[in-house]
Design a protein around this nucleic acid. Structure first.
Lengths: 153, 153
DNA sequence: AGCTGATCTGTTATAATGTTACGCTCGCAC
DNA sequence: GTGCGAGCGTAACATTATAACAGATCAGCT
């Protein structure tokens, strides 16, 4: 859950997004870029209104739809994930993989570790298919306390 | 995902709750009881405000805290679960088991099937423990379309 | 360059979801 | 009865999310 070279991974993801935007039809506009940068830098989950405060502090326009639209876009393209339990958003650290994700989230500081979704998801899908249910998405969120927030012993 | 004897299972859970309330210190008050009944009868996820509308229609007092308090109580005692993805609540069909649950939820009609939480949850807990993270809860929600809502072929 | 259609942004307003705070009542232990 | 804690009633408010529409910008075309 701890230190690694943030700058490197932020830049890596951003330039990956830039490449993707060139070769495909999606537009990596300033708002979208800035929202992704903020989430990457924070490396934890932020609410839409937290993002708005940040954007506003930086002199950007900041009504709710601004944030929600950017987030919707970024989520659709796999750059951010929404944590349902927290109503908050977190940047994906490896958007190049098309992955089923699972999240380990600190209840206190909202630090997030993204892990591989359990392989048993496929079992769930099988049993869902048996009852005629077509699976679209699987959400797995583990809630608890990270080392920093755990009560010091 | 289909028909079974609703009355029977509603009554079963309600009387189980009543028993529990006698032998322990919790109080199964009219509001709490009615909220649980409604959720059991519906057999699908309802939002807090949907519940409030129902309560109001039945002549009960119905400000938000009424519903949220009842739901909080019922959740704490294992009678209802919250579906984070939907901001909605669903009655538990087997509150006697102390279980990790996983939910299969129809995006359209909010029908819910509760299944056993994947056993891989324990793996998640192990790997979380390795990084010093203490797990409190695991949420698994599968989103898709139930047979009734799937586009007819 | 100028037009055009599609996409994105800016803005206002509003909806949906959830919480705080405070006072009253009721059941129960003493 | 008195006191206390749990639960309810109520008003106000906080947070999260969306609708609707106008204006700006961009890519492709001629």
């Amino acid at each position: 859950m701890r230190e690694h070279d943030h700058n490197a991974c932020v830049e890596r993801v951003i330039s990956y997004a830039e490449e993707r935007s060139k070769e495909s039809s999606f537009r990596f506009t300033p708002v979208r870029r800035r929202v992704l940068e903020i989430l990457l830098e924070e490396h934890r989950a932020l609410g839409a209104y937290d993002l708005l405060k940040r954007l506003e502090a930086e002199g950007m326009k900041a009504q709710p739809p601004i944030a929600y639209r950017a987030l919707e876009f970024l989520e659709k393209h796999g750059f951010v994930h929404k944590l349902e339990r927290l109503n908050a958003f977190v940047a994906c650290m490896h958007p190049e993989d098309d992955h089923e994700a699972a999240f380990v989230v600190c209840r206190e500081c909202h630090a997030v570790a993204e892990t591989q979704g359990p392989s048993e998801i496929s079992k769930l899908q099988d049993s869902a298919a048996e009852i005629g249910f077509s699976v679209e998405n699987v959400f797995v969120e583990v809630q608890g306390l990270c080392p920093d927030c755990a009560p010091k012993t």
